[in-house]
Every structure is written in structure tokens, then in C-alpha cells.
Amino acid sequence: MILEAREVKKRYYRDGLPFYAVDGASLSIGAGEFVCIVGRSGSGKSTFLNILAGLLTPTSGSVGFEGQEYAQLSDGELSRLRNTRLGYIMQGHNVLSNFTVLQNVILPHVFFKRDDDPADRALSLLEQVGLRPLASQYPSSLSGGELHRVSIARALFMSPKLLIADEPTGDLDEETVAEIIELFAAIVKNGTSVLMVTHNSDAANYADRIYTMKSGKLHPRLQDS
């Protein structure tokens, strides 16, 4: 088991009244699995993913990655986990505008002391997502689909065990969505587990399991056909 979340709850207060953005969600993802979560906006998906990525602490419940409990990890250890074993693509525009495409991909490399030279590996990843010619461009000259592909290349850069992606197909035209989804399918085939939140029903066709999130609760959806 790579990721395991048990009875995760996250409570917020709105106008002084408590409500649960995530309300007792449990999920486990094994090696090489492709899991999708669908649900309307505001259903708590992003909060849930932030908790799974260790960026948010749940109010109750627990999350473990390859047997390590998040609650027992320091900020440094958790950051290191995110840096090397867990690729997280956040919702929306994920690419830092002050850095070139290539620098963006290399970014995870600089947060911990390392000796190897990352440029070659980053370029070969950009080649795979079809952005090699744009390596020295700044994000402002890239299209939405290209930006998504940059963040995918960056998330893959440290060869993570699990890739969590929050709506990687949002705001894109159909053709681009298809390209991105194929890219994810290829990633899964390559042995990396993927957890993806999406509105897109096509993505579901590639998934091993699909969940629906509604008012903070996670329900397994039976795959029709």
C-alpha cells in the first residue's frame, strides 16, 4: 500500500458555525493504481488532496505514506517526502512565472542538498511531454495546456511513487484534455500510481477505481460497463 487515509475529517468555521469540508473520508491506493475522484466544486476534494499531500493537518483521522504516519513526521521529513516520493500538482496554474520552463521543472531539486546535475533529466522529461523546444521560455508565453504539461513534468521530475493531480484538465479544450489524460495513462503504465481529481468523465475510462465526493464524504462509484 502506498497511501492510506483513514476516517479523515477537516473542520472549518463559517460565520462561527462548524462544518466539515472533509467528513470521514477513507482511501487507500496501491502501487500502479489509477484512482479518480469526481465531484462538484466545493465538495471538499481540494482540501482532501491537501491533507493527503501533507500540506494540511486533518482535524481527526490519519494519513500514512508507505507505512509512515504523517502525524509522526516533522515538517522537514514531510517536505522531503513531498519532494521525492509524492508528486503533487495543485489546482489551477501551478507554474512559477519568474522561472523558465526548464527552471520550473528543476525547482524541486534545489530544496535539499544534492550533487547531481539535473538539467539533462529535466530536458528529457520535457521531451516526453513535448515541450523540449520551449525549455528556455517563460511561462507567460505558454498556453494553458502547455502549462499543465510543465507541472506534470515537474511532478515527475523526482520520480515519485504517487502522483496526486488536482484537476489537471481544468480550463482546457477537448483535444488538449485528451492529450493530458493519455499522458497520465502513460505515467500509470510506467508504474507510478496516480490519484486524480477531475470533472472530466473520459478520465474515468482509464481509472482503476472511481470515487465521488459529496459534502466531504467519499463514495465509491461502481463502474458501469
Binding site: R82, N83, M90, L96
Partner: peptide
């Protein structure tokens, strides 16, 4: 905040 969030998601520690 968004930029810092991205950096956090890429594994920068709070200290860094």
C-alpha cells in the same frame, strides 16, 4: 500565497 503554496507542494520546508 499561491507561489508559496506551489513551493510547499514541491517539498520546500517551512524553514527554507
Amino acid at each position: 500565497k499561491q507561489e508559496f503554496g506551489i513551493l510547499r507542494s514541491l517539498g520546500i520546508t517551512r524553514k527554507k
